[in-house]
Design a protein around this nucleic acid. Sequence first.
DNA 1: TAAAGAAAGTTTTTT
DNA 2: ACTTTCTTTA
Length: 843
Amino acid sequence: MEQLLSQLNEQQREAVVNTEGPLLILAGAGSGKTRVIAYRIAFLICEKGVPPWNILAVTFTNKSAQEMRTRVQRLLQGQELSSAPWVSTFHSLCVRILRQDIEQLKESYSRTFTIYDQDDSLRLIKNAVKDLGYDDKHLGARSVQSAISSAKNRGEDVEAFAARADYVDERRAAIARVYKTYEERLHANNALDFDDLMIKTVRLLRNAPEVRDKYNRKFRYILVDEYQDTNSLQFALVSLLTQQQQNICVVGDEDQSIYKWRGADITNILNFEKHFPNSKIIRLEQNYRSTQTILDVAGAVVKRNTERKGKNLWTSNPPGERVRYYQAFDAEAEARFVASKIREHRNEQPNIRAAVLYRTNSQSRVFEEAMRRAGLPYNIVGGFSFYERQEVRDIIAYLKLALNPTDSIALQRVINSPPRGIGKQTLEEIDRRARDFGLSIWETIALVIEKPDGLSPRAVAALKNFRTIIYHLAELAGAPLPRGTGVRGPRRGSPAGVLDPPVGDAQGAFNSESFASPDEHAQDAHATLAQVAHVTLSDSPVSDVVKAAILDTGYEIALKSEKTDEADARLENLQELVNAAVDYDEQGVEGLREFIDHSALSSDTDQYKSEVPVTLLTAHSAKGLEFPLVFIVGLEDGLFPHSRSATDPAELEEERRLCYVAITRAEKYLYVTHAMKRRVYGEELASEPSQFLNEMPLEMIEDLTMGKSWLSFARGSTTIDYPQDEPHKEKRKYMGKTYDSVDSIAEFFKLRGQQMGNTRGSSPPIVTKSAPRRSPGAPPLAHPQDEGGTSDFVPGSYVRHAKYGRGLVLRREGVGDSTKLTVSFPGHGQKKLVQKYANLESA
DNA sequence: TAAAGAAAGTTTTTT
DNA sequence: ACTTTCTTTA
């Protein structure tokens, strides 16, 4: 341990050895935060003799949890440990607690509850919107989902939400009714959505003193990573868990707070000392990751934020090279540039790892393509994960059904996939009857099989077939379902663990008939966590059940008979799913349930290989990672910063922090690029450089663009700093001929025309050399061709609308009569208007 | 009922 | 541009 401690600097060491009482570690980017947490855990175990199971470390993503586990493991190598410390995400921690104790909540949820991911929850909301008779045009399921989610995260239940929805606000009242139905149906399905996982856990700990006490005694030392991103529920959870011992250590950095949109509450970290009296604060300000230049650039950008305490991040690393800049013609050219630079770097340093950071996942496609073309193996983080693929979700749905057939979302998903003759008509009829009798769909199927009442024999046969498949899977899983109309589940079965494996008969699962009815078995609601984790009663491995879900359902045959490349790829994915299941082969229902939980809670592919030359990811998912070579791409106005943040200064600051996070991922080399035009929704749009580029010290940037670029214009003029709070007054001064991307495109064509000896073609007007720089974000001048009258309505200018009043033009699309403007009106939100009909005047 | 074709919505970031 | 959902047709 002595030797371990000597590898840390003074502040880091302080952070490690101060194990007792509340501790706030303010850790700047690259200051060795993960290292400190790992050492701290090792220190607690080795030096303080704390048993590993008394330690809990919570992170936000699976990726960082995994990283943490590996680090701790490496430090403790050689140590014989009886168990590992709990390192988990907030959500998986909640799942583990709820799987154990949710019945103490007395809300008639059973421990066999199903987790609904965002997609499942969206389906449920869609159904609810439809069944309540609302027009899904007016009440988009997605926006309802986000309204409900943020209500939940504010701690507003249905009643509170409805109370705030007075009769004036019809839309809100409608959402309130959907919210109510949604909650009822979640409950009827014995299902919890992501937000519920937090909510129910907090409620459980609040309302059940004995449960709270149990976990307080269990988790004697708690660490929370990325504390600046915690929301009020997560704060409540942490407070409840540390009520008794107060050994709470949180690590965070206000400059890296990028999840306010998801309810993160920065005051959690700012008021830590108030929440936890007698707390210590330690600052980690030495950066070990980046060159001085990269750090300076990052600092210059984030300095523009006003909502900030500020800190003194320094490094003893060499200055390194300048940041490199490239202005690409379009998104494809940008990707080609990045790929070729990565190859150049790898020629110099064969094993250098590169990352491409973009604002939105939709940008990843071009880069994938370019990497493939350049023969660079790449790894893509986020986007559609493995578990989000249709075929994988289908098989998971079968598995969910085997454990909980009342899960109507899973049932609807697979009842007819692969096609087995249960069509829309049949489903609607069943749905109607289910509602009439107040039964779940599964229960109704049983009813219909006995009393078809007008349903075609063919449909009944198909339903029977489907039911047999589920019966079979349930038996194989070691959780046999009662035959006939008898139904169990949270609503009628005994609440405790009816779905749990039969105790004391290892053969049970294989002998399907003998377990047609569930055995009575002792259920200790207060079983210890260890007991739950090691229930190994049924003999069938998880992978066998997964295989059965692929084969016995006819899924494989259906795919094989398709004989398309796509079907083959799907089959391969399913093989991959079986492989994943092999890892979970600790047998039995608990193993299967854990497997399913994992699939719901892992959004990013965890088999992310760090040795791969190139990693493609969003700036958000890059947080916590570092790469010697980093490309920040798409630095364009409206993209990064994103246009959705244009109207709110606080949101713009969050975008800036995101940019800060992106820059500080780089160790040695940083490239920043933008394209002059880009396709958005299939439409080609000219794009302006990001204001964040302008906030970087220009002398620290090297221009790699062939010919003229935005940067060369920017350099040609004196830098004008306008005060943060009053940008508009200053900006309006620059009304001379300015840079904009149309001119740059003109420049590009001219240049290319010269290179190719081609002087023909209608070159747009060329920009004058002496052009002063326009500060990005300022109103660009009208293009020469639309001079007069309407030419003022360009992005950045203000207009007046008869109904909405004064608004800011954000985007302009199309030409002539079809010109559309996206305008943001304070109090009315963004509107898309056809310029010809909108009767706008400039304001 | 299922497959094929047409229309509409989509993209901010994530557990 | 791409994907999901609605509509038509075999």
